[in-house]
Amino acid sequence: MIHFTRNATRIQCIYDLKFPCGYEVGNPWTLDVVNQMKSYGGLGGQCKPALVTPQFGVDRQ
């Protein structure tokens, strides 16, 4: 989570970093990840929650 300056209780954006190591790299948007992003969306924030991977970069699906 990225918080606003001088206000740790206010969420600016949410990023979930996924670094697949040692297993096959495929579509990171599994059902579990989609549900996780939906739950993050309920926390608020100025931007839609994003998944960050080395293969796909920042992705807001």
Rank of each mutant, 00 (worst) to 15 (best):
M1E: 12
I2V: 15
I2M: 11
H3E: 07
F4W: 04
T5I: 15
T5M: 12
T5E: 15
T5R: 15
R6Q: 13
R6H: 13
N7D: 15
N7Y: 06
N7L: 08
A8H: 13
A8M: 14
T9V: 10
T9Q: 12
R10A: 08
R10Q: 13
R10H: 09
I11K: 04
I11C: 03
Q12D: 14
Q12C: 11
Q12R: 14
C13N: 15
C13I: 08
C13G: 07
C13L: 08
C13T: 13
I14W: 00
I14D: 03
I14A: 07
Y15F: 15
Y15Q: 03
D16S: 04
D16F: 05
L17Y: 14
L17D: 03
L17P: 03
L17I: 13
F19R: 11
F19C: 09
F19W: 13
F19I: 14
P20E: 10
P20A: 10
P20W: 02
C21P: 02
C21R: 13
G22E: 03
E24A: 06
E24C: 00
E24N: 04
E24W: 02
E24M: 01
V25M: 04
V25I: 07
V25A: 10
G26D: 02
G26S: 09
N27A: 03
N27E: 06
P28D: 00
W29H: 10
W29Q: 05
T30A: 06
L31I: 09
L31T: 13
L31C: 06
L31A: 14
L31P: 11
D32F: 06
D32L: 05
V33K: 03
V33L: 09
V34G: 02
V34R: 15
N35F: 05
N35S: 08
N35A: 10
N35P: 00
N35D: 11
Q36V: 07
Q36M: 12
Q36D: 12
M37A: 09
M37W: 02
M37D: 02
K38A: 14
K38M: 12
K38W: 10
G41W: 07
G41C: 05
G41F: 04
G41M: 05
L43C: 12
L43S: 07
G44D: 04
G44Q: 02
G44H: 01
G44C: 01
G45M: 07
Q46N: 09
Q46M: 12
K48D: 00
K48F: 08
P49Q: 04
P49D: 05
A50P: 01
A50Y: 00
A50W: 01
A50S: 04
L51A: 03
V52H: 02
V52L: 04
T53I: 04
T53N: 03
T53E: 01
T53A: 06
P54M: 11
P54E: 08
P54S: 10
Q55I: 07
Q55C: 10
Q55H: 13
Q55R: 14
F56M: 12
F56S: 15
G57L: 01
G57Q: 02
G57N: 01
G57M: 00
V58E: 14
V58K: 14
V58N: 11
D59E: 11
D59W: 06
D59P: 00
R60D: 03
R60M: 02
Q61H: 14
Q61A: 14
Q61N: 15
